[in-house]
Design a protein around this nucleic acid. Sequence first.
DNA 1: GTCTATATCGCGATAGAC
DNA 2: GTCTATCGCGATATAGAC
Lengths: 192, 192
Amino acid sequence: MRWAPDARGRLERAAFELFAQQGYAETTVPQITARAGLTTRTFFRYFADKREVIFGGDEIPEFAASLIRAAPPGLAPVEVVRSVLREVAATRFDGHREETAAWRRIVAADDSLRERDALKRADLVVAAQAAFVDRGEAPPDARLIAELGALVFHVALDAWLAQSSPASMAEATDAVLDRLHLERSIAAGPSR
Amino acid sequence: MRWAPDARGRLERAAFELFAQQGYAETTVPQITARAGLTTRTFFRYFADKREVIFGGDEIPEFAASLIRAAPPGLAPVEVVRSVLREVAATRFDGHREETAAWRRIVAADDSLRERDALKRADLVVAAQAAFVDRGEAPPDARLIAELGALVFHVALDAWLAQSSPASMAEATDAVLDRLHLERSIAAGPSR
DNA sequence: GTCTATATCGCGATAGAC
DNA sequence: GTCTATCGCGATATAGAC
């Protein structure tokens, strides 16, 4: 065929390698596309902007939201958070610690990327809040529990990547959640 | 004098008005500087990038950090958070509800600005964590309590702006904190 | 202040695939 | 022939260098 397949994947890999080697800011889009054998214009057809290459297919918000909606109706919100985080951690992170760490190093090194990362977290909160509302929570409570879930997720991710011994990320999310010392009733009692 | 005074303030006001009228993305830096009677170059002397005009002197991280460091040594972390948030709310927000709401509307309408807003929140967490570490908390606990404080602050801000009756933001931060149903011991017990 | 690199995006052309 | 992925060219805005 006329074009090598998986243009998107090639762009992602080329970007990842260049960012790791010379840094995000020092890497230009033409450099990335040259390495992937494509043109600059093509890059922007796959990614809205340069930052998105490294956050590519981030379906975590959708995945988490679907898990929240699928949780048993009676389960307390905190327990929903616990099981959803376990599931996300186990299926998306455990077994990919090294790649995740390399990715995190790149992101942490550049403010543009930290910024995009922070937006992704905000978007996760929005998606999770909507899911909790669908489960019957009042919007303010749904917001709170969604924020808490995102908080635990991000703190646990950093903790998991920081520890030298390779425990599972699922354990890390549990540990952070427990450390919060939340009452079981959180965001489950009647609104004031 | 040769130049009209308060160049920075004029740029901020011009930007604010234009963003409110035609949106952030539709407003160019030359438009802003034209309205302020300055050149594009001058704009970037005062602000690192276009987004920063609207987040101008955001000294909240430094302010919050200094309050945390100044809190009574024996006070439980959650109570430190409670009093710091009260203080920040009362001195920086109460009495400016309308301006804050207008500002929030602009930010919420554009992803570039939501992104910067999210980064500011992350920076607040970093500053607060450092302050809690100085107070003697273990870094992981300091991180948790800092994240919690930022969470309460942002949720309370939205709640305060959303409510029709003009309560104080200090009350809003208290309400959100109470709603979390945290045990008093949070992040105060011995590290595992 | 001026000059310039780089990101970003609109539009039309093109070359197979079906 | 139509469709789709890609290219090529050009325009504008941001941002940084000199």
